[in-house]
Design a binder for these strands. Structure first.
Lengths: 230, 230
DNA sequence: CGGGATTTGTCAGGAAGATGTCAGGAGAAA
DNA sequence: TTTCTCCTGACATCTTCCTGACAAATCCCG
């Protein structure tokens, strides 16, 4: 999987991000200041750099300049404080690839990380990328072909299972109640009394989760429904 | 903003709901019986209908049938009395979109209203703009996902805990009395005698405050209630 | 200041309630 | 027929949540 270097001096934030990135399956390295960051970069040669601009010992801009001068192609995602519009622009000018403003939503960051990595890896900026594949974790869902891959391995889903998965994906992380799922997937609306939805969820977990007993992506929201963590 | 029509014969309830919905920024119209309800519907053409099933002059089912026959796409949220399981099922079969059982917590209703509207509005809003996240300190609360992050670390809250937190956040820093919390989260208004609210507050502090013993954000206001400092 | 009265914090445990799991059989598809 | 898929209901396994007793904090007033 991809290696990410995170240069961030706020330990709480760094710790939290690291955790979440690791949950996503990335290999994460961290550094707490600019100098250490550069060293870590040279050592780890990451696929993506997340760089806070406000840093002790060599601020973010210097780190940026150093790296870019050496001609690395590593995509760089910059973290800026709110209101530091100028910094953001400057960083982008210098060659950063994307930015996120603090305080930021975790999902936003993850989405951008993924986008950057995908772009860097595939390089396929093809004209009509109409395939619209949905992803979460190592799972890739192609609605038009109705195919599912898990870590590039084809997975066979029964029709209902696939529809259920799609319904969850369409909510984009929001919780979907059993009733809604019933309506969307099963198309009729009875009060949910039996374990139908749950059974199918279980099946999805069995097929798509690494450890179905403690799912990382197909999550239960007690008293409410289910949701997908991207 | 969205227009909501509320058909409910209990004046107290109608008044309270109307107020709260308006606070949320909805445009609310009310009717006290089925006949008036249908007229109001024709006139106002609302984006959402909240319909009590027990109504004088044309009960809720007839209103439902009327509206559905005319092929309106307006989402309908039905209010049923507790124990009237059959009514609920029947309404859903007829085409109601969701239901809430009386007595209900205000927050639950609001959440469902919002969900229905979001869904109706075309559902597909771009990823980032639909998610309104509330923050205080290093805590980030996402109502649509029902997730909470503390310094980018996921925190698991039990349903009641989450609702309680939301109720406090909704007040935007103002003090909320225990009684009001009871009403909004628990849905009934008994005199508060037991330590229920306090217990849940304690749990929230434990999970969200750096030092639960001297909280910085979830504050006690003696003789009054609790409030959140952003 | 000090003591009594109020108010809030804390805790543990068990019942109620929600979800996970399973196997079997009906029905559809091959 | 055989194979899949789906649904169901019974059962197992967590979670949650409330309660009530007690401790701690705070207030009030003499």
């Amino acid at each position: 999987m991809s290696r990410i270097l995170l240069i961030e001096d706020n330990r709480d934030l760094a710790f939290g991000l690291r955790n979440n990135l690791e949950i996503e399956g990335y290999d994460v390295d961290t550094a707490e200041d600019g100098r250490a960051g550069l060293e870590a970069f040279a050592r780890a040669n990451p696929d993506l750099l997340i760089l806070d601009l406000m840093l002790p010992e060599l601020d973010g801009f210097r780190v940026l300049r150093s790296l870019l001068q050496e001609g690395h192609a590593t995509p760089i995602l910059v973290l800026t404080a709110k209101g530091e519009e100028a910094d953001k622009v400057r960083a982008l000018r210098m060659g950063a690839d994307d930015y996120v403003t603090k305080p930021f939503g975790l999902l936003e960051l993850l989405a951008r990380v993924e986008a950057l990595l995908r772009r860097a890896r595939g390089g396929r900026t093809a004209v009509s990328d109409a395939t619209e594949v949905e992803r979460f974790g190592v799972v890739e869902v192609n609605p038009t072909e109705r195919t599912v891959y898990r870590a590039a391995q084809s997975v066979e889903l029964a029709p209902k299972e696939f529809d259920l998965l799609l319904a969850l994906l369409r909510a984009r992380g929001a919780v979907v109640s059993r009733l809604q799922l019933m309506r969307e997937v099963w198309g009729y609306s009875s009060a949910v009394v039996s374990r139908t939805v749950d059974t199918h969820i279980a099946e999805l977990r069995r097929k798509l989760e690494e450890n179905p007993a403690s799912p990382r992506h197909i999550l239960t929201v007690r008293k409410t429904g289910y949701r997908i963590r991207p």
